[in-house]
Design a protein around this nucleic acid. Structure first.
Length: 653
DNA sequence: CTAGGGTTAG
């Protein structure tokens, strides 16, 4: 068992001042005592205060402040900025009070600065109050509040104020537009604000901002975050002026919304067709994500080469994305190698490695790296926990997962969010402790939300628990009625329980909402080319050959006791028909294609857009032995490494 | 006072 306490935390609690903190007051000469002379009544202290602020000596500046009878606007401005930089809310409140007494309470310039300061010091109520009390609101004051509220996640409030602003007749400027566009996606509420985004889109065009790069790039990003890929690309195409940021935003949009091919294509276009927009590290991170999504090792290596040539290989986010890319393309060792060569690492780089081992099913290694990170003196982030708990889940480490979950609050003062609860529900649910998983949800101190219920429903499918699945899906249909996956999971469960009437009912519900099941698809990369398979398309010229090979293999397997598992078929058909359907699954076609076309001894690498079905799993195990081939399959959740008739997941997935 | 990015769960 691993020790889950953190030596780092013990250390930092024993010393009151962290050693890395610069000791500003003691190392600087006491300027103030030299210059400050209370008897000298005619002195103008404004300049002294200002220079102290610029040096970062806020405390001393505050000591001088009472001696200045007429502080100027500029003096207050620097004091306010200094409070932000020093991260001191109490000093900020002092300065604020002082400025009110000095008669600057209606100064819109200082109001803007104060709002920015409170926003940076996470005191949004104070920011709001400044706004409310300022009668003469310039566009700067409005924008400052919009910015503050957007950063704090109060997008809806911004949009309400924006409406009011329009009613009063205050014209927006380019800054206003970027903030309100961001506000549409910076909202915690469950209802989509896409319609507002579209409305603002219209305002922007009406007011002639269609060639403003910042505004239009924000718009691309807004649509991207709503998953509206075609809207985003329309906006992008319409932009008369583009720069690196615009290109990066569009590439990121494709990479994050299931269009990795388009992302790579746009990257190619960027390199070939533009002169002033040269890809930078941010661009490359998204391009690497696209390679990860495609599981295209060859593409990934080419991009890695480009990164090296462009000298972007020492930038932390790029390296972390590289680690992830290699791991997700099935080359965990290369990911580890990239990590080992890093000169400097941060939490994110460690998280990349933790999750990499997790998706490959190496739970123990993942926990080990997690602990090593802590030992090196880094504090785990909430994502570290999502990653390591996910790793426990894949490996079936229930006890370890529980301990880590408990250590979150106890040792690291990180309060579990929905993501962590979703991991725990998944961990317990998969391990067939469904009641305990349900209990976790009941005991949650925050609103469960779709991720948590989704985890429960997923586990219910694995263990075919109709009752609990009905409970979970009832909530899910309310929370995210347009997510087809939930309906499909429920029909799967009903089908397995032979409740065909119910299967029909849920399918109708799915159709009534205009949704459809995501068709299963598998990809394989052979000699730098990617081939895609579904069970219905017959585009591949070798398709007959593939079906024949699978039939032959299936018969040989049957002789050795294989019984096709047809649970995944959602139609009430006879056994023979079901067997035929299962044998045509896209993954088997891809495996067969690999057997025929990949060079001898080469590992067959397949990527799938869904979870592996049980029959494909057992057939692939058999083939790995029969054909003496290593087969690596990445399904939506994790890797399966088939070798000599066994799978790295230990049949637990 | 403006825009894009790293690690995650089913």
């Amino acid at each position: 068992m691993w020790a889950l306490h953190s030596p780092h935390n013990l250390q930092s609690s024993s010393t009151s001042t962290p050693f890395y903190f610069p000791t500003r007051s003691s190392s600087r000469p006491p300027i103030c005592s030299l210059t400050l002379n209370p008897k000298n009544t005619g002195t103008n202290y404004n300049q002294l205060i200002q220079s102290l602020c610029k040096q970062g000596s806020l405390k001393q500046a505050l000591q001088v402040l009472p001696h200045e009878p007429n502080p100027t606007q500029h003096t207050y401005e620097l004091l306010i900025l200094s409070c932000s930089l020093q991260n001191s809310l109490s000093d900020g409140v002092d300065v604020h009070r002082h400025l009110l007494d000095a008669g600057f309470d209606q100064d819109p310039f200082l109001a803007t600065k104060l709002i920015n300061m409170y926003s940076e010091l996470d005191s949004i109520d104070d920011a709001r109050e400044v706004f409310d009390k300022t009668r003469k609101r310039t566009i700067y004051v409005w924008n400052a509040l919009f910015r503050a509220l957007t950063l704090a996640g109060y997008g809806q409030e911004v949009l309400g104020l924006y409406r009011r602003m329009n009613e009063i007749g205050i014209p927006s400027d380019r800054f206003t537009y970027t903030y309100v566009l961001k506000a549409c996606v910076a909202s915690e509420c469950l209802i989509s604000l896409l319609h507002m985004g579209k409305e603002i889109h219209a305002h922007i065009l009406r007011h002639g901002y269609e060639s403003h790069v910042h505004v239009m790039t924000t718009m691309v990003d807004m649509y991207a975050r709503f998953g509206c890929v075609s809207n985003a690309s329309c906006v992008f195409d319409s932009m008369p002026v583009r720069n690196v940021v615009s290109w990066s935003a569009m590439i990121a949009c494709y990479a994050k919304n299931g269009s990795p091919f388009e992302a790579l294509e746009l990257f190619r276009e960027m390199i070939l067709e533009t002169h002033d927009s040269v890809p930078n590290s941010v661009t490359m991170v998204s391009v690497l994500q696209a390679c990860s999504a495609l599981a295209s090792l060859e593409q990934g290596k080419l991009i890695h080469g480009y990164i090296l040539r462009r000298g972007l290989d020492s930038i932390l986010p790029v390296i972390s994305a590289l680690v992830t890319m290699y791991a997700r393309c099935g080359k965990l060792e290369l990911g580890q190698l990239v990590f080992d060569r890093m000169a400097k690492r941060d939490v994110v780089s460690w998280n990349s490695l933790i999750s990499s081992y997790g998706i490959h099913g190496f739970g123990k290694k993942s926990i080990q790296i997690f602990l090593e990170m802590i030992q090196q003196g880094l504090s785990p982030s909430h994502i570290s926990f999502v990653s390591v708990l996910g790793a426990c889940s894949h490996a079936g480490f229930v006890e370890e997962g529980k301990m880590l979950f408990e250590s979150m609050v106890k040792e690291h003062r990180i309060y579990p969010s929905v993501e962590h609860y979703a991991c725990m529900v998944d961990l317990l649910g998969r391990a067939n402790q469904l009641d305990e998983a349900a209990k976790i949800i009941e005991d949650m101190r925050i609103e469960p939300g779709p991720k948590v219920w989704g985890s429960l429903l997923g586990s219910c499918r694995i263990h075919c628990n109709v009752e609990l699945a009905e409970r979970a899906s009832r909530r899910l249909f309310e929370l995210e009625p347009m997510n087809a996956g939930n309906y499909v999971l429920l029909t799967d469960i009903y089908a397995e329980a032979n409740m065909w009437g119910e299967v029909k009912r849920v399918k109708k519900l799915l159709e009534a909402r205009g949704l459809q099941k995501l068709p299963g698809r598998s990809w394989i990369e052979v000699k730098r080319k990617i081939y895609s398979f579904t069970s219905v398309e017959e585009l591949n010229p070798q398709i007959e050959q593939l079906h024949a090979l699978l039939l032959k293999l299936s018969n040989e397997m049957k002789e050795q006791g294989y019984v096709p598992q047809t649970k995944a078929v959602l139609y009430d058909l006879d056994t023979e028909e079901k067997e035929r359907i299962v044998l045509g699954h896209s993954e088997k076609l891809a495996v067969a294609f690999g057997l025929i076309n990949a060079s001898k001894g080469e590992t067959i690498r397949i990527t799938k857009n869904l979870r592996l079905c049980e029959d494909c799993h057992s057939v692939t195990k058999f083939i790995s032995k029969f054909a003496n081939r290593e087969i690596l399959v990445r399904d939506v959740n994790r890797f399966h490494h088939f070798k000599d008739g066994i799978c790295s997941c230990g049949d637990y997935w």
